[in-house]
Amino acid sequence: MELTGRHKVNATPSTLWNMLMDTDTLSKIVPGISKLEKTGDNSYKSILEIKIGPVGGSFKGDLQMENIEEQKGFTLKVQQNSSVGNANAAIKIELIPVTIEETEVAFDGEVKVTGLLASMGQRILGSAANVITKQFFTNLDHELAKQQATS
């Protein structure tokens, strides 16, 4: 499944970059995340609780950032396993400055799923992914507003 989209955020690339590189912030904004543990410079171990239509499960796996270009973007590699199927994704994320205070986040990648996720969940995977992405950016906006309010 293709996963592409753009979202404008009220923050500079550097603010955004710092948030995306921070484990605590990430665990607050990634939907369904119940555990996020840094295992290396650019890698994490995670547990996600996700429900896609009729299929729900607890996903365990690795998140890895590659091709990192400071404040410009990176490729997020995700390998998540669960009893209802595995998900494997490589998503290119770019931070594009729009104005001084605004940055556009562009993402483009492919998600591959297996198991029940593929055989029963795939039909609605696209719309589920849209919801999850939307949730991610809502959380991001919310977190940003919180940080801006406190600073």
Binding site: T114, S119, M120
Partner: peptide, 14 residues
Amino acid sequence: YDNNGQLTNASYMD
């Protein structure tokens, strides 16, 4: 089947 060889309608819902 999708291109990854997953049978995408393997239930009576699909």
